[in-house]
Design a protein around this nucleic acid. Sequence first.
DNA 1: ACCACGGATGAAACTTACTTTCACGGAGCG
DNA 2: CGCTCCGTGAAAGTAAGTTTCATCCGTGGT
Lengths: 304, 304
Amino acid sequence: MVKSPKISASHEPGGLIVHISGLLPSLSPAEQRVARLVVSDPADAARRTITDLATAAETSEATVIRFCRSVGMDGYPQLRIRLAAEAARRVEPPDARVVGGDIPPGADLAQIIATIAFNDARAVEETAEQLDPAVCEQVVEAIVGAGRIEVYGAGASGFVASDFQQKLHRIGRMAFYFPDVHTALTSAALLGKGDIAVGISHSGTTSDVIEVLEQARSRGAGTVALTNFPRSPITDVADFVLTTAARETTYRSGAMASRLAQLTVIDCLFVGVAARNRARARRALEVTADAVRARRVGPGRRRG
Amino acid sequence: MVKSPKISASHEPGGLIVHISGLLPSLSPAEQRVARLVVSDPADAARRTITDLATAAETSEATVIRFCRSVGMDGYPQLRIRLAAEAARRVEPPDARVVGGDIPPGADLAQIIATIAFNDARAVEETAEQLDPAVCEQVVEAIVGAGRIEVYGAGASGFVASDFQQKLHRIGRMAFYFPDVHTALTSAALLGKGDIAVGISHSGTTSDVIEVLEQARSRGAGTVALTNFPRSPITDVADFVLTTAARETTYRSGAMASRLAQLTVIDCLFVGVAARNRARARRALEVTADAVRARRVGPGRRRG
DNA sequence: ACCACGGATGAAACTTACTTTCACGGAGCG
DNA sequence: CGCTCCGTGAAAGTAAGTTTCATCCGTGGT
């Protein structure tokens, strides 16, 4: 058996490669070698026979098969044709920016900008592609029906959590965010059936967030995890798992791509929730916009 | 017509399917049955095994192999992956999502996600395109040489400001962010020549941010504005203006696109700054990553 | 009418690719 | 120190793909 019976479904419509990248850290070393080969050149991998690929990855055919199963395929032939399809679909970017590539040392700013924009945009697109609308729908449903919503996140993911809280609050949902673990734990302990706890962690391994989510769950609240890695520990304490698809480079490890990917998911959830009651949400947005109008200056002239 | 295993080269540029259609009349009856199956549903054919396809075409495997050779393939596996690739390529391009379009009232979540992702990714790309590398360069320069860096932003832009501060801080630059206007004003008053103040405001009209930036400027600090509107009030108090390119829709006025666009710019600046001293930045990132390692759990491995 | 010929075809032999099983070895745990 | 569990590849086993070959059938020559 693979994973727990989560609601995250075995769903990788938006790109097999992306899906594999996400699973990469949860694979065994030998399988990771295979995965890296596959990800780095899907078309080439599709051309190879299983023995060939195994040799190239310095492992045995058995491991390649295990890898296929790990990423949700029936066997090698299926992986092969999926890879071929995938490779065909992705039209190579015009110039030679390597996806997820590091910034070359001699790069000038224009190059840097181009590379970053490419990767950032990519993260957004790929995240959206692989998002499972069914799971989103359920999460939206849960949020709409929730008595209280709490959002947790540490460090960089904390910004995202905070952002989500603010958005929900703004359309009149009772949402909270606690930067402090102790406060968060305390608050989580007060959750109950019908409440929703959302934990955000790129790596899926942030113990603070996991603990709080666990606490919330033990009290009967529904739990949602937002992470880049579908088999990371955080998914064990989540009723619903939503994943991002950001490929981080070593150099940019404080990187933005994961943040953008997370925000994209948040945006989808937010709009989904808001769409449930357009009138009310719109009214709330207007009211809140009015509230800060006094803090604005001039006509915002985009004058000619 | 007889079939010509002649010098027809293994070159079918216009697409494999077209190629096969063209050859169809020159094939033997049994091969034609195979060809028709393949042409009518390439994706399906790619999924089938040779025995399967042979049965479906009411013929033997041998004939399928002959068919493969007739159309210039080495064997069945090659045909299969070529078909998969072909089928994938001829998938309809994403449908007509209007750029900057609002979400139609009846939209289901899948549509919403697609629209959002499209607009978000677009905002990132377009922002990068219109970003002036020369100005970025100057800003990076200023930040690298700055004694102190302060970042201001209110509301949603506050998250971005905070994020930027955190990033800079993480690579060892002396950066600050103040959520509170009074504190920010006080701090700005203490800036001087050689310091840098960065104000973030999507609309460019947030008086709090403008005031603080003004204060900083009056003390001799360099000022940077990040806004979506190149002629908004904030640009009057900025030495350097960086712009985003997010088209906000009415409905999503709490919108994410502008946030993502801002973050993209921040990302570019950050990487630009970090690139100035790769060794130091990398070391700092490693050290800070180590610092939170204890707050992480397990290897993210979960199977069985 | 008969036969010789050649191409088309599928059965079966054969080869290669894929999958499963199993035993080994090392890491972590009591 | 011994235990278990997990990752691993060797090898056995199965299925897929390929080749060979005998048969069939239509054609054209005798």
